[in-house]
């Protein structure tokens, strides 16, 4: 007789054969929530005030798609400049050089400390402050000069305003990520005679990415919606385009629904993309797929 089958009664006590009790109250809760959700969806779908036919009619209209492309374009450009400038600011702020770190701190202090809307209006009205922009030798002759109004179009003002504001926030996010990397890693790159730039690019930043990406995803989604602020400086983004329509037709809610659905579609796509990027930078982490399980409170059967 082997040890594994000592007696039938002990065999029955093998936990591998145990039944999980059915959690009736959880099923009930599920049914209730689904019922409420279905009822709400029904209400919204059959409510004439939402004007679904109008939504459908305008959803892919030329002016709306044009506004959508402006929103997407502005977001991408402002985000890329914001991340690039933010990276430089973060490195400057962490450097031992007092001059660079003070300048970076000053930039971050100013651009985080003032409302984005005000910054946009300032950029747009730069010509009232500095009618001419010129490259000159300080206290000496002027080399080239431009009329500020020629340089600052709604587009350049929007890009400058959004990206410099974004840079200030990204700088702090990136700095937090760089600080999260173990000091021993920096020491290893030093000991192997790597240059600062190479150490950052190959060793430090790839490890910092794990803590940089989730807040950057947040920033990106905020940015998509922040671009709607540029309507104050007459940039025709998505929100501005639907406003232009409902100012004529007075179909306020249906037109806003058009914008809402587009915003939700973009953010959903971005969420999926973020998931892929996070998994890429999590390589080398043991039990990456368990990260979600670790914070799951209850184990669904």
């Amino acid at each position: 007789m082997t040890e594994r089958t000592i007696s039938p009664s002990l065999d029955m006590r093998d936990v591998a054969t145990a039944h999980t009790p059915i959690a009736w109250e959880r099923w009930l809760l599920w049914a209730f929530v689904l019922f409420v959700a279905a009822d709400f969806a029904w209400l919204v779908a059959w409510n004439k005030n939402f004007g679904w036919p109008i939504v459908a009619q305008w959803f892919t209209a030329d002016s709306i798609l044009k506004g959508l492309s402006v929103t997407l374009g502005l977001t991408v450009v402002a985000m890329i400049i914001g991340i690039a400038v933010g990276l430089v600011l973060a490195i400057a702020r962490m450097s031992d050089d007092r001059l660079f770190s003070s300048l970076a701190s000053l930039f971050i202090w100013f651009f985080r400390g003032t409302p984005l809307l005000v910054q946009l209006i300032f950029w747009y009205n730069l010509s009232t402050l500095f009618p001419e922009i010129s490259i000159a030798i300080p206290f000496g002759p002027t080399l080239v000069s431009w009329n500020t109004n020629d340089l600052i179009t709604p587009m350049t003002a929007a890009i400058a305003g959004l990206s410099l504001n974004e840079a200030a926030y990204m700088a702090e996010i990136i700095r937090g990520g760089l600080l999260s990397v173990d000091k021993g890693q920096v020491e290893a790159t030093d000991a192997f005679g790597m240059t600062r730039a190479r150490a950052l690019r190959r060793i430090i930043i790839p490890q910092a990415m794990r803590s940089i990406i989730p807040p950057t995803g947040n920033q990106l989604i905020s940015m998509i919606k922040a671009t709607s602020l540029v309507s104050v400086i007459a940039m025709a983004d998505l929100l501005y385009s639907v406003q232009a329509v409902y100012n004529r037709t007075f179909e306020v809610i249906p037109m806003l629904m058009v914008a809402v659905i587009w915003y939700l579609i973009i953010t959903s796509i971005l969420n999926v993309g973020q998931g892929f990027i996070e998994r890429y930078y999590a390589r080398g982490e043991r039990g990456t797929s368990n990260a979600r399980a670790a914070i799951r409170l209850e184990e669904p059967a």
Binding site: D182, G184, Q185, E187, A188, D190, A191, F192, G193, M194, T195, R202, I203, P206, Q207, Y281, R283, G284, E285
Partner: peptide, 29 residues
Amino acid sequence: AVQRRKIGMVFQQFNLYPHMTALENIIEA
């Protein structure tokens, strides 16, 4: 940095690059 390139160092906490495989760690420098 150039001076350090002829000196190898082994740390108490290993300090391997966690995002690289063993082979990638070795060929990095």
